[in-house]
Design a protein around this nucleic acid. Structure first.
Lengths: 143, 143
DNA sequence: GGTTACCTTTACGTTAACGTAAACTTGGTT
DNA sequence: AACCAAGTTTACGTTAACGTAAAGGTAACC
């Protein structure tokens, strides 16, 4: 059982996720990451790596960094008063609603893309059919 | 059967979709809309309205305006050579892949949010339980 | 000891998607 | 005639999310 490395350099993470080191430092700047330091150099743990993965997932879903940070903060919250808990629950409900909307949007778009694809395939088939016809009826004013 | 209006003003659409007229004009500027004119004034048909709706759906999904325009161009394409059709099919496949990724992302996030919600509810229940306990055991060094 | 490969901070530049303000026209209303 | 609401163009401002360049530190390798 090969143990996975416990720490990563910024370059390793950048390569793994195909982003620039600049981006990773920027995420830190915005409070989304907080790696330890080895002197000056940043050292990323597995936890940091997971966070980065989550940031990128957020981006794929059209989240702003601020939104993702919000979700992180929700998740990290331990010290929670009743009032805080209630706001968190409300926020969660909001997110869930908009995510369900996104689910619907995506399903609809997928259907539409499938239709479009079919139309394209039909057109292609027509073109190829007419080409085949041209081959069986050769030299008919072709240049 | 009340017929829906055949044309809309820019203000009507802005109100309906809760965006600014500035945005609508900007979308036109970027080639996503092309309303007719009544003199200077823009006149939007039902088709235009649908387009606007699609633009907003795209935004919800994290699409850039350029991407949405791309999809529009795909859809509008009539005069299609074989080569064009093949590129379109490739693009469609790309989109479908990333949409399926988004679907997965969203499902996972929804599960995580549900977990978080449950944790919150549990904490809330604890708090309320302890409050109830405090009420049945009154004045115990409360200010 | 010089080069190479990464790492660092600082800071100015860039693109997308509008916001905002100015200055003007047009159609209806009092 | 005066006025208001809604439309128009033109143009500069703004924010997010990085890109890019400058100037420098450190560790390994030839």
């Amino acid at each position: 059982m090969t143990t996975q490395p416990t720490t990563y350099s910024i370059g390793e993470l950048a390569r793994e996720f195909d982003i620039t080191t600049r981006s990773i430092r920027f995420y830190e700047d915005q409070g989304l990451l907080a790696p330890q330091r080895q002197g000056q150099t940043r050292l990323y743990t597995n936890k940091d790596r997971v966070r980065l993965k989550l940031i990128l997932r957020g981006k794929r879903l059209g989240f702003s960094l601020a939104e993702t940070k919000n979700l992180f903060d929700l998740y990290d919250m331990e010290n929670s008063s009743e009032r805080q808990l209630r706001t968190v629950l409300a926020l969660i409900d909001d997110k869930k609603l908009s995510l369900k909307q996104q689910l619907e949007d995506i399903k609809v778009l997928l259907v539409e893309l499938n239709n479009l694809e079919e139309r394209c395939r039909d057109e292609l088939a027509e073109i190829e059919a007419s080409q085949a016809a041209n081959q069986s009826l050769p030299n008919q004013e072709s240049l």
